[in-house]
Amino acid sequence: MAPDVNALQNHPGDVEYPVRSRRRYARVLEAKRKADPAEMRRRALPVTLIAAPFGITGFVLSFVWQVDDVIVNFFAFAVGMAVGLLVASIILARRDAGAPRRAQLAYIAASGRQPLTTRQQQILALDCASDFAARGWNGSLAFTPTYAELPQELRMKHQDGEKGSPWFSLPVASLKQLRGALDEQFKIVTKADAELLVADTLTMGLNSQRFAEVVHSDGGEHMMTRVAGLTDLAVFDIQDLARGTEEHPARLLLAADIERGIGGIRYAYVAGYLTAQETWTLLEPLAEKAFATYRSWDEYWREVIIATAFRTDSLQAVQSQRDALADLRRSSWPAASVTWPASGARA
């Protein structure tokens, strides 16, 4: 786990952790720049400043070498400019290769992000599969850069994203766009809605509600057999999720509800409805229930995969999620190495 507030994460859209200079970033930025006339004009200035001295030097040297032919003089200038343009392209490409890293450092400095405690990283790891799949951040409360973390002067200057990002190589979605997506996915438009999501999750989340309805329907047995087949588990394992005792109610699809709840609350933070302190306060009871119910990451993710099979009824979706989790475990992400809490899980 990154122990330092200035530790870089993966570049959004990539899984490498932490981000570093890469030639492919230069190619991506150049393609993006060519689609933006304003950026092309801005690029022309450093190119000219680097290339022009080479052209002038060639022009001057032609006179030093006592060449009196004007055509030759301008040819020397053209050759010098060609060399200068080549040098400019090499220098600026190298600079572009490190642009995402510099932009993320600038974002970290502007946001004043605080270092995570071990407990906080454990909480975020409960949502790491979706972060990894979306190529987002899992080493910070925000899973993507957001104006909600930036100082007021930057927010006003860029109108919370309506006037673009402060950094060309680090896209920052507008709060308007984030809030629209949050409402569509979680029906959260206020702080109270986020609090209700936590309360519902702790009682019976959306995945568990649907699972319970199907379990007690005429198609319940068929559904459990189908889910067992998709996940390559015994049907008794699926049936056990619907069985409870006086001491412990049926788990149903609790793991998936916890994952969804943590994702929704983090999204509410990214959209600016919650402060960091409010977000951690809402996340804590969700994490506590997960850590008190399951005994390991393997057990937790096993039941998330069961929920994926139930929700999608798709072998491809189950296989894709398993592959993503395997890739995550092999990665250098903080979530791949954080430990499951040693105490609290029920026997």
Rank of each mutant, 00 (worst) to 15 (best):
Y273I: 15
S331N: 15
D127H: 06
D200K: 08
R101S: 12
E299Q: 15
V83N: 02
V72S: 14
R266Q: 08
V338M: 02
L116W: 00
S331M: 11
V72Q: 12
S332H: 10
R41E: 13
A192D: 09
A276H: 07
V72H: 05
A324R: 10
R94G: 10
W301D: 15
S130W: 08
R23I: 10
A148S: 12
R101D: 07
L85K: 06
K163F: 12
G263A: 10
G261R: 00
A35Q: 15
T118Y: 05
A142D: 05
A250W: 07
D232I: 04
V67P: 06
D183T: 15
A93V: 02
P249S: 06
L206R: 09
Y25F: 14
R295N: 06
R119S: 05
R95Q: 14
A38S: 13
E149Y: 11
D160Q: 06
R42P: 02
D237V: 05
Q321K: 15
S140H: 08
G136N: 02
T275S: 14
W340Q: 03
L315K: 15
P37C: 08
A103D: 13
A31P: 06
R41L: 09
D232S: 12
Q239E: 15
G112H: 07
Q316F: 11
W65Q: 12
G161P: 05
A134K: 09
I56F: 07
I265Q: 07
A44C: 08
L286F: 03
E16Y: 12
W301G: 02
M1S: 07
R101P: 01
R135V: 05
A347V: 08
T118P: 01
R119T: 04
A31I: 09
R102I: 04
Y17F: 15
E278S: 08
S130F: 11
Q185V: 13
L141H: 01
T231D: 01
A317K: 10
R179S: 13
E278K: 08
G84M: 03
L175Q: 13
G13F: 13
P53R: 02
M1Y: 11
D237A: 13
T57D: 08
P249M: 09
